[in-house]
Every structure is written in C-alpha cells, then in structure tokens.
Amino acid sequence: MENLNHLRKLMQENFLESVVVVPGPNMAYLTGSEFHLSERPVVLIIEQDNATFILPELESPKISKLDVDSITYDDRDGPEGAFQHFANKNQFKELGIESRTIRHLELNLLKTTRITSQFVDATDIFAQLRMAKSSEEIDCMIKAVKIAENSLESVLDIIKPGVTEKEFASELVIKLFRNGSDSHLPFSPIVASGVNAANPHHFPTDKEFEEGELIIIDWGATCNGYFSDITRTFALGKNIDDELIKAYEVVKQANKSARKVAKVGVEAGIVDEAARSIIEESGLGEYFTHRTGHGLGLEIHEEPYIKPENKFVLGKGMTFTIEPGVYIPNLGGIRIEDDIHLESSESVSLTTLSRELLFL
C-alpha cells in the first residue's frame, strides 16, 4: 500500500483529513482493484489512520486481500443504509473529491447522510500522486507503445483507395488485441482521411480512402492499465496538395522543437510555445487549435498539460505527449504525436516510428 501512504503524506501537506475515491484510475492506482462506475456506487474513503470501502456485496471479493475496512449493501436495500452506517461514526468537516470523476450520485449520498457538508477539490493532490512514473510504470508504457506501433505497421498495407475509415479502424483494433493490448483501449482509434482530417477528433466513418489525400491515424494500446497515445499522418499516392506538404513539414519541425525544449525544470507553457511559435511563424497559427500535449499514464489525458502560458514546472519521471497539428478546413490536416518521458534532465521519446511523411 505504498501508494496509499504517499497519498496520506500529500493529504497532510495540504491539510486535508480525508478524501473519497470512486472507480477509475486513482482507485486502481491505490488499491490494485478495478470497478465500473455504475448505478451501484463504490467509494473508498481514506483517512490518515483508516480506509473504508462502501460497495455492493457482489463486488466484495475484489477487496478480500486488501487491508481496509468495508461496508457492503445488497440490491434489495440499496446503498443508503451502508452510507448511513459509516456516517454514524464518521463525519468530516471537509472531504476531498475527484472533481472530474465523482458523480452527483456519490456526492448526494455523502451529503444527505451527513458524512460531510463540504467538498474540496483534490484534483491537484491526485495529480501530484501520479505524475512522476516509476520504472515499472514506464516499462508498461514502453510495452504499450510497442504493441501500438507493431499493430499499425502490420496493417498499413490495407490502406488503399476504396477501403473505408471504419474498415481500417476495425482491422487496427483487432491487431491491437492480438498483439497483447489490454481489452480496455485508451480510446477508439481516430482514422481521418481527406477533408475529415481537418477535424482533430474525427470519428471513423464509411468514407472511402482516395488517392491524393492525407490520412491521420491516432491510436494507442494498453499494458497493465497504462496507455500509449500516438499519431502519424500518411499520404495516399504522390499527388498531394502542395499546401498540405508544406504544412506537414511545419508540423514536423514544431514537434521536433517541442521535444528538444522539453526538459526537467522547464515550464510546460515554454514547451507549448516551442511548437506553437514555429506554426505561427509559418502563417498557419490559426489552424493549430489545441494544446501541444497532455500527461499520459493510467488516463489518456492527465496532468501535466502542455498548453499556452502554463507555469507548471516539469519534473523527473513525468510522461506526456507532444502533438502539434494543423487542420485546414475543406482541405485536410496533419498531426504528429509522440509519447515523451523525462528520464533524467532530458526528454526521451518512447515512440519510435518515423516522423517523415510516408507515401503509401
């Protein structure tokens, strides 16, 4: 329970007597147990000297080997009695919460049973807990990268005129599983061809690939809960619009610049500026519509965020993406995304695929 001890230290430093955790990455990180967010609430209430699960009876085998207290409920009686049972002996002036994850369902049970009347956002505490990755965590992320890269390379020959975005995405997903990804992928792969590539978070459609267009593929794999997140852009045929070819080179240089600047002790906003300034100087700044990167680990988007004017100072062990992009309406788009680890003072790219434009 080393991770739990670390959390308690952070709670002390932030003068917080208790926090509540719901199913998701933080619960998995602290306990090694995974649950679904469902109509049956599961919460773990953590104090300095105690930790208590409130959960459905059917889920109790998952925590049988954990050194925690538990209160269970069944489907007939529902969760209210279990929360009230805990409240009879425990009330807190303040209770730290995961504001991006916890729902009204859990908040209402905690408040109406008078466990607390005051919620405090503990997002920053959980970010501090998980941002610096251990060597074991990095090993998992490297494996997730290898699974993703090997899977894509094995299906690139499928990209031909007439194949649809959805057809290619389905083949890629099958390869990810066959090559060893956990069943829970980081996200459904983005396959965006032609004008669809001007939408950064495009969902694959029945659009067919065509000669003379760029194709953005954004995909990842999972290893023991840890994610990879990679994007490469490909050209189908040689007759690509000159504006897109020039934009590709700009994005490639922006990616390189940000990777070079990313170091321990550098502000996240400085890394963003290293990429953004190159794109803006090229005259394409209006088409770079998102941050340069985001933290990566048990969540596909977590701290630190590589965004404009972010004063957060990057530290040893942190992992994040570098993914500048240009999206030109009615023409197409480019994104080149790498997974970065601050191994020591310098950054190391966990991704190994070429960043040169590959003509298929």
Rank of each mutant, 00 (worst) to 15 (best):
residue 165 E to R: 07
residue 132 A to G: 10
residue 65 K to M: 13
residue 145 V to R: 09
residue 265 G to D: 10
residue 256 K to H: 11
residue 60 S to P: 05
residue 167 E to Y: 11
residue 71 I to G: 04
residue 12 Q to S: 06
residue 28 A to N: 15
residue 265 G to T: 05
residue 42 V to L: 01
residue 16 L to W: 03
residue 38 S to M: 03
residue 40 R to C: 08
residue 261 V to Q: 02
residue 84 Q to A: 08
residue 24 G to Y: 06
residue 35 F to G: 05
residue 113 T to I: 00
residue 214 L to P: 04
residue 30 L to C: 04
residue 167 E to T: 15
residue 128 Q to W: 11
residue 35 F to S: 03
residue 25 P to E: 15
residue 137 E to M: 11
residue 155 V to P: 10
residue 327 Y to Q: 05
residue 177 F to D: 00
residue 254 A to I: 01
residue 54 I to Y: 01
residue 32 G to L: 09
residue 59 E to G: 08
residue 204 P to A: 02
residue 258 A to K: 00
residue 82 A to P: 04
residue 236 L to E: 10
residue 18 S to Y: 03
residue 55 L to G: 05
residue 256 K to C: 08
residue 70 S to L: 12
residue 215 I to H: 01
residue 286 E to Q: 15
residue 24 G to L: 10
residue 199 N to A: 04
residue 332 G to W: 04
residue 180 G to R: 13
residue 60 S to M: 10
residue 336 I to E: 09
residue 2 E to P: 02
residue 327 Y to G: 01
residue 103 R to I: 03
residue 54 I to S: 02
residue 318 M to V: 08
residue 275 A to M: 05
residue 225 G to L: 13
residue 34 E to T: 15
residue 248 Y to C: 02
residue 65 K to W: 11
residue 115 I to F: 00
residue 345 S to L: 14
residue 114 R to H: 04
residue 325 G to W: 11
residue 303 E to I: 09
residue 229 D to M: 06
residue 19 V to M: 00
residue 215 I to F: 02
residue 328 I to M: 10
residue 67 D to Q: 13
residue 146 K to Q: 14
residue 23 P to S: 08
residue 55 L to E: 04
residue 292 T to F: 11
residue 149 E to P: 09
residue 222 T to K: 09
residue 135 S to D: 14
residue 288 F to C: 10
residue 121 D to N: 12
residue 80 E to G: 06
residue 341 H to W: 14
residue 86 F to H: 00
residue 248 Y to W: 05
residue 135 S to W: 07
residue 189 P to R: 03
residue 360 L to S: 09
residue 353 L to D: 04
residue 36 H to V: 14
residue 354 S to Q: 09
residue 297 G to F: 11
residue 115 I to D: 00
